[in-house]
Design a protein around this nucleic acid. Sequence first.
RNA 1: GGGCCCGUAGCUCAGUAGGAAGAGCACCGGACUUUUAAUCCGGGUGUCGAAGGUUCGAUUCCUUCCGGGCUCACCA
Length: 495
Amino acid sequence: MGSEDQSELLRVRRQKLSHLLSAGEEPYKKKFDRTHKISSIVEAYEKLEPGESVNEKVRVAGRILGIRRHGKASFADLRDGTGTIQLYLTLNHLGEERYEDFLNFLDIGDFVGVSGIVFKTRRGELSIQVEEYSLLTKSLRPLPEKWHGLKDIEARYRQRYVDLIVNPEVKEVFETRTKVIKAIREFLDSKDFLEVETPMLQSIPGGASARPFTTYHNALGLNLYLRVAPELYLKRLVVGGLEKVYEINRNFRNEGISYKHNPEFTMLELYEAYVDYNDMMNLTEEMIKFVISKVKGSLKFTYQGKKINFGNDWERLTMLEAITRYTGLDISFDLSLGELKKIAKEKGLVIKPYYGKGKIISEMFEKLVEGKLFQPTFIKDYPLEVSPLARAHPENPSLVERFELIVAGREIANAFSELTDPLEQRKRFQEQLKLLEYGEEEAQRLDEDFIRALEIGLPPTGGLGIGVDRLVMLLTDSHSIREVLLFPHLKPEKT
RNA sequence: GGGCCCGUAGCUCAGUAGGAAGAGCACCGGACUUUUAAUCCGGGUGUCGAAGGUUCGAUUCCUUCCGGGCUCACCA
């Protein structure tokens, strides 16, 4: 784009840049030695009396966020990664040329380094009396308005760098996100879990019922899939003797985008040998309580205007109990398939012809009950039909030892006693293959090497997955998953 | 993918029952040596998302497309 096509705002900044260059100024410097971060100046000197100054020269650097001109003296706001401080610039201290240059050629958005004396104005604002300044980076585009910030949701996501500059609460969300992940690691590391990394590129996508992204390896001439879950690899590691493992990393699912779905999202999965899903339930509760206390300082907070209390012992209901309680329907596997379908259709559910009793019951739970569970609730004993990797329930062969943690109507965690019997696992995969034939693209594929690993022997194992983004949504009071992803997926801008 | 809504200046938003495109901030010029959403005086900087259509005339009405939001479906 030539300069004649640009708006006046862009043109003016480029003119200032040209002027600086022709005056021998370097507008993109490589470094600046600081003596202080802004927050350390604020901490050290915030108790100064108005009018008082400190006999110590400081050097700080940051981005100019505001300029207030007052003739022969002016103020500017300077922000670095730790805080904001006011600059006080006067003709007396800088000399006429440097003072005028600051006002004429520097703009809001520019990075500058300054040196000067710390003092407090008579209005009580901690400030730096600037004796020297240096332009570090010239900004060529205006920032959004100081009062309303950047509101346009699309612009905020596409230009997250601007969002982070002008909307301070956005930075806090991502700091919280990092704290959550650190707290998870702290908790699991203290319990001697080993953090590992397993393949993102898989030749058989496994471990979850989801459509995968496909890709191609040129050198090997091989179709590959982006993983939908790390599960089968992590269980191979338990076979290998790593008794407690976890991975926090990205999963990719080729599905729709919504306020709670992004095509790539972050998942915690962990596996522990010699324990079952009841132990996983206890571990989940302990871990999430640890994370929330660490991050929020309290186990009670509000999410989207409603109070959530994580402090009590969380309720544990079987799926069938939950359906009965929240719908009044007396559902069990004793009903015939025909009866279940009839009830489901009366409730407005879409039931495909090949659905069995288990799938219908899980549909009833997900569509009719899940959204009503706001307080943290464990729902346990899922239908076997929808859980091809979980161990059957000893008291009911139609169920498995599996639970999900539901909070604010959403699934936060999913766990089970792992199926360790290789012969049974092969049968389960074969049932999944039938679903693939029915056109259920999310059905799971047969993974012969995983079966071979089970044949080597997987000890009794409990496994757990937690959707990290959704947990962060809860703890940051975010309505949309996009608010907790730095760069949520959007369609490409223009052409 | 379906339904509803949105797209006007760099940003936040008005507006035109179809007839010369507006405000605040930002920006440009001027005044001002302790201001802080500084103030005061002057200046509107625009492909009204894009392309067609209707019309004497379209930013406004219609169609299609692009992008976004909410919601339903699918999923975590």
